[in-house]
Design a protein around this nucleic acid. Structure first.
Lengths: 227, 227
DNA sequence: GCCAATTTTATACAGGCGTTTGACTTTCTT
DNA sequence: AAGAAAGTCAAACGCCTGTATAAAATTGGC
């Protein structure tokens, strides 16, 4: 649960292992699982091809380890705050205003990470997994994606007064979620449309402002009586 | 500009060509560009491997043709209505209420297509292209995605009163767009969360209802004075 | 400094890939 | 019906892949 994708270590073997994991993340992200060859990954890590078999058994297990690392990293981003919110939800100490603020903070954090941070290395792997989930993706979904999605749904349900288990509440949370991750998933589209060579923190801030507005508007639809 | 992904033809050669394109779309969608082998595609089309070289030159050109077909199909879905809206925009005959209705209709149409329709064959290919755009994707972006995105931005700008060329208007349209396509891009996630084996028309309807609400709320944020 | 365990290395292997080739069959034109 | 054009097909090519092997080099504990 550190902010490091893969923890460092003084051991020689562990360092080689870590180097392979980092190189694998990079190459899998850049070129996809199939296009990234084990030789290429080993070269990028300054290792021999055999090292992958030695440390991970085979290519697929290396990939599974990379996904595990991604899961831990993603959880670490929102980890403490998410637990805090879970506590407030459990004790009933989250009112609609607090829930609205929490949503905005979560989305801001996600946006910041996705546009700066090490996330860019993680992004492509995640996107490819959404397009064609591997067996290892199940683990990532169960341990990382679903808990976050459930948390979002429960927070939003505080605002809307819906049952957080109801399909509509889940769909609503997913739609809101979509407003954020579309800037990751369809990153090239928005980058082209804004005609910028690269999305930076200033874009993350502006996107955050727009999404804040939308969150406020949508929430107001529930707290204000319908006209 | 038909609703057929690839037009049929009485010619023998054209039929073989079409069979290869359909099989290629299916296989590229199921397994990705690299994993779908030319032998596999040819088999699925009931053709010999050499047929791909004969009709398309090589695998990459076959893929480019598939992407072209996808572009035409996507344009055909909203084609007439989009042109109608462009006319209304050009003549200034679109008021905020009409714009809001148009947004809802466009999103409903997209949702319906993405959940039923032939779109499911197209979806995986599109998702993979977002993860790692090929050279052929540029064409798809320029001729299909960008025009739709620009249209959405202009319609939304009628409601918000923003300059449709301004970054905020573009970002706002992208966020709204995200609410819809997240049900395609992160389809597995919502399917798991709703605990259904398959998303059907009834889900498309419910999702449409939720998104309509959100559109209305967000638009009301601009038409009503801030409290 | 030694020995055992760990790590690194080069090489080999079988299999699948996209593509090419050239002979063959079918279809169309006149 | 004949000849040309279009389409089909099996076989083979060179290349790259993931993995296995076994020898060589390095490391760490005593």
């Amino acid at each position: 649960m550190t902010r490091e994708l893969f923890p460092n270590s003084p051991n020689k073997g562990e360092q080689a292992r870590r180097g392979l994991l980092l190189a694998a993340l990079e190459k899998f992200g850049q070129r996809g699982y199939d296009n990234a060859s084990v030789r290429e990954i080993a070269d990028a890590a300054g290792q021999n091809v055999g090292a992958i078999a030695y440390y991970f058994g085979n290519k697929e297990s290396l990939y599974a380890e990379v996904l595990k690392g991604i899961g831990g990293y993603l959880r670490s981003i929102l980890g403490e705050y998410a637990n805090e919110l879970r506590g407030q939800l459990a004790s009933g100490n989250l009112d609609p205003d607090g829930a609205r603020t929490a949503l905005k903070r979560i989305f801001r954090t996600m946006l910041g990470e996705q546009i700066d941070g090490d996330f860019y290395k993680v992004r492509s792997v995640m996107m490819r997994e959404q397009a064609s989930p591997s067996e290892s993706f199940d683990l990532l979904y169960r341990e990382t994606i679903r808990p976050l999605h459930e948390l979002l749904t429960r927070i939003l349900a505080v605002v809307t007064g819906e049952d957080p288990q109801s399909p509509m509440a889940i769909v609503r949370a997913h739609a809101l979620f979509g407003q954020v991750i579309v800037f990751t998933l369809a990153r090239e589209t928005i980058r082209h449309r804004l005609e910028v060579p690269k999305l930076g923190p200033e874009h993350a801030a502006m996107i955050g402002d727009v999404i804040d507005e939308h969150i406020d508007s949508i929430c107001r639809g529930f707290t204000l009586p319908q006209p």
